[in-house]
């Protein structure tokens, strides 16, 4: 009797726990669904907005494409002159594949006006309008940014596919299927790293009137330190040491090394770990700056 009574209590407690967790789960699911709905709506509106400027985006991407083709011509010339199979550990097809891959990644990450919108939203007071809306402003900016990246990526991909077809004799497939998936993951994480890096240098607009100065400096450094112009392993050792200390190599050099199978499994694990540490650190810094900045922004309003 006593046992049955205890079992009854246990069952009812279990039921309560069950209902409680079911409720929490359902609540979280709904929350996630609503969030996704919200940000998908933002993404959809952004997509439409950017499509209006598609010619500008297309020209931006095609300009980078032409510049990358010239670098490819330079390497064709070097291999032709040296009459050698391998230069600095790269065969000609490997180098061409590397540069074409870097070009595609560039269309995904090297967006010229990255961060302008965030800077303007803060300085022109548009942020106040966003803050009263039921959405997270950083997520709003992230959804808009991902949308723009997707569009420039599609435009870039189209252009590069044509040149890959023309240079198909020199374009080599990924080292393995696993390498290809890891390459895609690394590119995606590299894009997130890139967003947060520029995001931090855009939200310092809470303290500065204009932030394009620091963002421009980063873009200039990125043009060489991502390895999209030339593989970083071709630099003298002391330069490589510097590049290894910076996060930029994860945006192009690291994914392309995975694609070509030029890194060991342990190096891949180490690389991904470092990449995640960089992303976490940048997210942490960005949250801290955002909160400090928001306090300053609210203080202005009082």
């Amino acid at each position: 009797m006593d046992i049955d009574f205890k079992l009854g209590i246990f069952r009812s407690a279990l039921d309560r726990y069950y209902y409680f967790f079911a409720f929490v789960f359902e609540y979280l699911y709904e929350l996630f669904r609503n969030l996704m709905k919200k940000y998908l709506a933002v993404a959809k509106a952004t997509w439409q907005e950017y499509l209006t400027y598609r010619t500008n985006l297309f020209l931006e991407v095609i300009g980078g494409f032409v510049a990358q083709l010239v670098i490819i011509a330079v390497w064709f010339s070097i291999f032709r002159d040296l009459k050698t199979e391998i230069v600095a550990g790269y065969s000609l097809p490997e180098m061409i594949t590397y540069l074409l891959g870097a070009g595609i990644i560039n269309s995904f990450i090297l967006i010229a006006s990255q961060g302008d919108e965030i800077n303007d939203d803060i300085n022109r007071g548009k942020l106040s309008g966003f803050l009263v809306k039921p959405l997270s402003v950083p997520f709003y900016w992230l959804s808009r940014d991902l949308c723009r990246r997707a569009l420039t990526f599609i435009l870039g991909m189209g252009e590069y596919l044509v040149i890959i077809l023309i240079l198909s004799n020199y374009f080599i497939p990924p080292f393995s299927l696993a390498n290809f998936f890891m390459f895609c993951l690394a590119v995606l994480l590299g894009g997130i790293l890139h967003f947060f890096l520029f995001y931090i240098f855009s939200i310092i607009a809470f303290w500065m009137d204009q932030t394009w100065g620091p963002r421009f400096v980063i873009r200039v450094i990125m043009s060489i330190a991502t390895g999209s112009l030339i593989p970083l392993s071709l630099f003298p050792a002391n330069w490589q040491l510097v590049f290894n200390l910076l996060p930029f190599k994860f945006m192009a050099y690291f994914p392309l090394q995975i694609y070509l199978g030029k890194v060991s499994v342990s190096e891949i694990i180490l690389g991904f770990s470092a990449l995640l540490v960089w992303i976490s650190a940048l997210i942490g810094i960005s949250v801290w700056i955002w909160e400090k900045g928001l306090k300053k922004y609210s203080a202005y309003g009082n």
Binding site: D81, L82, S223, I230
Partner: peptide, 25 residues
């Protein structure tokens, strides 16, 4: 000042790019 610094760095990067190319050929 940062933009001036960036523009100057961009010029030096071109020289660096050539130095790296000639480091290998």
């Amino acid at each position: 000042f940062l933009a001036v610094l960036g523009k100057a760095t961009r010029m030096l990067i071109l020289i660096l790019l050539f130095r790296v190319i000639y480091f290998n050929t």
